[in-house]
Amino acid sequence: MLDENLEEFLREFGQPTSQRFPTASEVEQYRGILPDRLLEYWQEIGFSGYMDGLFWIVNPADYDDVVERFLESTDFPELDTYHVIARNAWGKLHLWGKKQGIH
């Protein structure tokens, strides 16, 4: 069942043009780390691309190495634990900090 936020997202971005649904273990790996609502969205719409690849909801595990390398020379790893939850076609990564939320 879609909630108001997901309905609005789909109105703006349209239906997925690419989609892969997570396994139960992929969802459970992030329980207590990412918001429960996001995990529900994964189960509703999967890891999916929109507008022919302009925006993607992604599996954070696919980007763990990227985040680690990007943040290794900063103080950010001491502040929070970050996971990529979305990206766009130009490489902008949308991060979720366990303590601080979206970045």
Rank of each mutant, 00 (worst) to 15 (best):
L38Y: 13
K98R: 15
Y63V: 01
S73I: 11
A24I: 13
A61S: 12
R69P: 01
D80Y: 09
P35G: 03
D65Q: 14
E26M: 09
S73M: 12
G97Q: 10
G49E: 06
R11D: 11
P22D: 00
T74R: 13
D80Q: 09
S18P: 00
G46E: 01
N88R: 11
T74H: 11
F76I: 15
Y82C: 03
I85Q: 03
R31H: 10
L95Q: 07
L2M: 12
H103K: 14
L38Q: 09
E7N: 09
D80M: 08
T74Y: 12
E12P: 01
T81P: 01
F21V: 01
P60F: 01
H103I: 09
L2C: 05
K99I: 04
D3C: 05
V58Y: 12
S48G: 05
L93Q: 10
G14S: 02
F21I: 02
P35Q: 08
G32V: 02
F55A: 05
R37G: 00
P16S: 01
I85H: 03
P35D: 01
N88C: 08
L93K: 13
E28L: 12
E44Q: 15
T74F: 10
W56M: 09
L39I: 04
G97H: 12
G46I: 10
E4M: 11
H94T: 14
R31D: 04
G101F: 08
G32D: 08
E72M: 12
H103A: 06
E68P: 05
P16Y: 05
F21H: 10
P35S: 04
D36N: 13
D65L: 11
A86Y: 08
T74N: 10
E78V: 07
H103P: 04
Y82D: 00
F47A: 03
R37F: 01
F21G: 01
H94V: 15
E72D: 06
F55C: 03
H103E: 11
P60C: 06
D62Y: 08
P22G: 02
V84A: 07
E26R: 14
G91R: 13
G91S: 05
G32Q: 11
T23P: 08
V66N: 03
K99N: 10
I33D: 00
D80F: 09
R69S: 08
W42K: 07
T17K: 06
A89H: 11
D36H: 12
Q100V: 07
P35K: 09
R69W: 07
F76Q: 14
P60E: 02
W96C: 03
D75N: 14
I85S: 01
E44C: 01
D36T: 14
V66S: 06
N88D: 15
A86G: 11
P60Q: 06
L54V: 03
Y50H: 13
A24V: 13
A24Y: 09
L54F: 10
Y82H: 10
L34F: 10
E4P: 02
G49P: 06
I102K: 15
R20H: 02
L39W: 04
Y82S: 02
R87A: 04
R20C: 00
L93D: 00
E40D: 06
P60I: 06
Q43L: 07
V84L: 08
T81K: 15
N5Q: 12
A24Q: 14
R37K: 15
N5W: 04
E12A: 07
Y50V: 05
G32S: 10
R11A: 05
L71S: 11
G91C: 03
K92R: 15
